[in-house]
Computed example of a mutant assay.
Amino acid sequence: MRLNHQTTGPDDAPVVLLASSLGTDHTMWAPQADALSRTHKVIAFDHRGHGASDAPPGPYTIDDLGNDVLELLDATQTEQASYVGISLGGAVGLWLAQNAPDRFHRFALLCPPVNPAANAQTWIDRAAQVRKDGTQAITEATLGRWFLPEYAEAHADEVETIRGQLLNTSDEGYAACCEALSTLDLTPKLADITAPTLIVTAEQDASVPPETVIPLASTIPGAHLEILENAAHLVTYSHPERINSLLLTHLT
C-alpha cells in the first residue's frame, strides 16, 4: 500500500509520524509542522483512501490501517519513530502501541476513538450515505462537530481549508474507513501499552466525547492526560499553541 507523505525537518533528527483524522489529509498538520520540524524529522502522511494515497475498495480494517504505517516506516527506512495521531489517526496509534511496540518511542493521541464499534450502526450508515451521495453529504455536519461556532465564525479561512479536504476525500476511502471504525474495539489490550503516552481530549468534543477518552489515562500505564477547555474535536487548529507545547514537551 502506497501512503502519500511529506517529510520536513533535519534528516538526522528523531522521526515523528503525523496521522490525520477521518476525511482530511496530511496538510491538516500545518499548524504543527513548522514547530515540530525544528527538532524532528516529520513524516506527515495520508491514510489509505485519503489525500493522494492509494484508495483500494473497502471495507478496511484497523489492521489494514496500522500495517500501512509499518510499511511506511520500512519504505522510509525508519527503524523507530514517535507517533502523533488525531481522531482516526489516534485510533491507529493505539493499535500500533499494542501491536508494534518495538517500532515506536512515544505516542501522542489526540481525541482518539477507542471503541467506536459500540455505535457500529452509525458508522455503517455513514459509509452507505457517503457511497451514495459523496462526502459532501456529511461535510457540514462534520464541521459543526469539529469546531465551536465562535471559532468557526472568527476563523473562516481555516474552516474552509478543512471543508476542502473533506470534500476532496475519496468517497470509497472515507466509507471504507468508516467500516474500519464500525468493527473497532481497542479496549482489551490498553493495559499492555508500554510506550510513554500523551492523551488529549476536548471538553466539548461531540465527535469523540471526553468521557470516552479520559479513562485511557488510568488504563494505559503511565499515560498523561490533558483536557482542553472551550475546545471541540479539531484541537490542532483551534488550540495550536497549546497542542504544539504539549507535543514538544512530550516528544523531547
Rank of each mutant, 00 (worst) to 15 (best):
P14Y: 14
V200I: 10
F147Y: 07
W146R: 00
V130L: 07
A156T: 14
D25Y: 03
H250R: 08
P221L: 11
V16N: 06
A30G: 11
L73M: 08
H26Y: 13
Y83R: 00
P112R: 03
Q204D: 14
N168Y: 08
D171A: 14
P31T: 14
S218C: 04
G173M: 09
L72F: 07
P215I: 08
A195Q: 15
L228Y: 11
L3I: 09
T122Y: 15
R2T: 12
G23Q: 02
L181C: 00
D102Q: 13
Q80T: 15
T139Y: 11
T139S: 06
A52D: 15
L186D: 09
G89N: 03
F107L: 15
F147G: 00
L73A: 02
G93Y: 05
A100P: 02
L181D: 06
G173S: 06
V84Q: 04
L110P: 00
S245H: 14
A195L: 08
R131A: 06
S170P: 04
N4K: 06
H26S: 15
D34K: 10
T122C: 11
A55Q: 05
Q204M: 07
M1N: 10
G58S: 12
A156L: 10
E226Y: 10
T139V: 11
H250S: 04
R2P: 08
R2W: 15
T212G: 08
T78K: 01
A191K: 14
T252Q: 13
W123G: 04
V15Q: 03
L184P: 02
L109Q: 02
V159F: 05
T187S: 12
R38L: 13
P56R: 10
N168T: 12
L22H: 02
A120Q: 10
